[in-house]
Design a protein around this nucleic acid. Structure first.
Length: 568
RNA sequence: CGGGCCGUGGCGCAGCCUGGCUAGCGCGCUUGCUUGGGGUGCAAGAGGUCGCGAGUUCAAAUCUCGCCGCCCCGACCA
């Protein structure tokens, strides 16, 4: 392609509204433009990258026996009502009506539609297993779109769905996807971690997330040498208390704490660290109050909490509810004497003695409170892991990092096949319900995550497999006929060698061409300049800016070999 | 949905507080010359309903009210 004929609107300055690196660079390098909050135009360069990414995804999905389809983004309400998700999805679902007033929505994911196909067509065990996938646009009315392509309202997803006869079959399909995802992200040149995750509104049992560590991310991952998990789900060993508990069977004792509301206040007031305090949180679980008691320096994992209760809808109680149930305001709450609700105690408080907590009387607290003795409750692991905890696997240190989710795999179980009536006959002629899995990859998140991982002050440093072009051929002086001619020849040879090449034939100063090539992140640049009379050109690798002099006739071959060796 | 910032040629910004004359600056864009290894230099140009609507005033980019949009923090999040 000839750059002078292309639409690559690079900007000299950073766009004001872009904060995270990938957003700033994708705009500046002319990959994308914004149409509205969370809605982007993918211009030529972005589209080229996306096509390369989707091609990798397609190849690896096909390699595990996936069959590509293309389903409607416009869905009738009925299938979503059948699964129950018409209500569950709430405001996150874009909804509309057709001219006859029929309810429709824009698909957020396609379990329902895939299941409707399956139940209409699959009749026999002989037809299973199946792996069906598509690469298609999804719509989610995010409350707060942000960070460029990282959190948007319309995006492209590879979503696949598996139908199996048995749980063992699902395990195999799940493992195939796990392996395929690793290959996909490896080929895209990403560094990522795979973590245990919770399955949220998808339903189902087991789930893993594929995460790229980045400050621009919004999901937290806890990881150590032999362990990695989503923050909401991670289990860990808490740091020991900073101060040993007072010994003996001391009775709870009320003391006046005017204006001391937060744990930090109490630490200062009592001269005891956070680990000697207990915090009490009133939660509403499926409409009923439940008290959660945690160590002062820990916070509640709502995922673990709802899991412990088997509850589906969990939220913090409102101030009025707290007053109604506890007779005191948040800031003076405690578990002693609480009888009207279940009390859940975090495991980190097991065996502790004579701690401090609220007295359920505004401006009063209790000291010498022992869990299990001075108040009763059920012990569960309820807390979020924190930096400084140690691993339950090997005792090693754990860290908490921000990450971007690029893929997610779920064992769905029978949720959709059951609710939507998918059945096949088995070998003995009995009706059985197939078991399902679902698996997603965010296509533009791969691009955005790659930019987050690989950039420098001059622009993107994209992996060759997903860069919009593999090489740019740059004559330094466009007025120099010899340089131009040699550049054209090298460009032609690159094309003949099957390299995705770009010819910078613009009548620009060399600085402009170099800056633009750096900005848009093309992995290799062949510079034709002052060494041409000696029959030499330079091949500059964007990553690391390594420059190699090569003979004109060897330039295309050199780049081809470098690309081949860096693949995978 | 709560809190905060912002909205002025394509991009980045100044002007607004303290109302006043042809609304400025840098970059980009067009034309000509020039230059040619890291965003050349000179010259001449084009391009703006100052987000929208009401109000105050002799007079509004500037003051007041309402609305819209966007970004950031939080809530939320397959």
């Amino acid at each position: 392609m000839y750059w002078s004929r292309l639409f690559i609107p690079t900007l000299r300055e950073d766009p004001a509204e872009a904060e995270v690196a990938s957003h700033r660079l994708l705009l500046r390098a002319g990959y994308i433009r914004q149409l509205a909050a969370g809605i982007y135009d993918y211009l030529y360069l972005a589209q080229r990258s996306m096509l390369k990414i989707t091609q990798i995804v397609r190849e690896e999905m096909d390699a595990i026996g996936g069959q590509e389809m293309y389903l409607p983004a416009l869905n009738p309400a009925e299938v979503w009502q059948e699964s129950g998700r018409w209500d569950v999805m709430g405001d996150n679902m874009f909804r509309l009506k057709d001219r006859f007033g029929r309810a429709l929505c824009l698909g957020m994911t396609h379990e329902e539609v895939m299941t409707s196909i399956a139940r209409g067509e699959l009749r026999s065990y002989k037809q299973l297993p199946q792996i069906w996938y598509q690469i298609q646009t999804k719509f989610r009315d995010e409350p707060r779109p942000k960070s460029g392509l990282l959190r948007v309202r319309q995006f492209i997803m590879k979503d696949s769905y598996t139908f199996d006869l048995t749980p063992a079959g699902l395990d195999a399909a799940y493992d195939k996807h796990h392996a395929a995802y690793c290959k996909i992200f490896d080929r895209c040149g990403l560094e990522y971690v795979v973590v245990e995750a919770h399955s949220g509104a998808m339903g189902g049992s087991q789930s893993h997330e594929f995460m790229v560590v980045s400050e621009a991310g919004e999901d937290f991952v806890v990881s150590g040498k032999n362990y990695a998990a989503n923050l909401e789900k991670a289990v860990s060993v808490a740091q020991p208390p900073k101060v040993a508990d007072p010994e003996g069977d001391l009775a709870p004792e009320e003391f006046h704490t005017p204006g001391q509301k937060t744990i930090a206040d109490l630490c200062a007031f009592t001269k005891l660290p956070e680990t000697s305090q207990m915090k009490s949180l009133v939660m509403m679980a499926d409409g009923k109050p439940v008290l959660a008691v945690l160590r002062g320096d820990h916070s509640l994992s709502e995922t673990k909490f709802s899991g412990a209760l088997g509850a589906t809808d969990v939220r913090p109680a409102h101030p009025e509810e707290i007053r109604e149930w506890m007779g005191a305001d948040a800031g003076s709450l405690g578990p002693v004497g609480v009888t009207k609700m279940r009390v859940l105690i975090d495991e980190a408080l097991r065996g502790r003695r004579n701690l401090i907590c609220g007295a359920n009387k505004t401006d009063y607290h209790l000291r010498h409170v022992t869990p299990g003795e001075d108040f009763k409750g059920e012990f569960f692991d309820l807390r979020q892991a924190v930096e400084g905890d140690t691993s339950v696997v090997d005792g090693g240190p754990l860290k908490v990092q921000k990450t971007v989710e690029i893929g997610h795999i779920f064992k769905l179980g029978y949720k959709y096949s059951e609710s939507m009536g998918l059945r096949v006959l088995n070998e003995t002629g009995e009706e059985i319900t197939p078991i399902m899995g679902s698996y997603g990859i965010g296509i533009e998140r791969i691009l955005a995550a790659a930019v987050e991982l690989y950039h420098d002050k001059d622009g993107m440093v994209l992996p060759g497999s997903i860069a919009p072009f593999a090489v740019v051929v740059t004559p330094v002086n466009s007025a120099d006929e010899g340089q131009r001619k040699a550049a054209q020849e090298i460009y032609d040879e690159c094309k003949a060698a099957g390299i995705d090449a770009l010819f910078d034939d613009r009548d620009e100063r060399p600085g402009v061409k170099f800056k633009d090539a750096d900005l848009i992140g093309i992995p290799y640049r062949i510079t034709i300049g002052k060494k041409l009379p000696q029959g030499v050109v330079e091949v500059v690798e964007r990553r690391g800016r390594v420059s190699t002099d090569v003979a004109v006739k060897d330039a295309a071959g050199f780049v081809r070999d470098r690309l081949a060796s860096s693949a995978r």
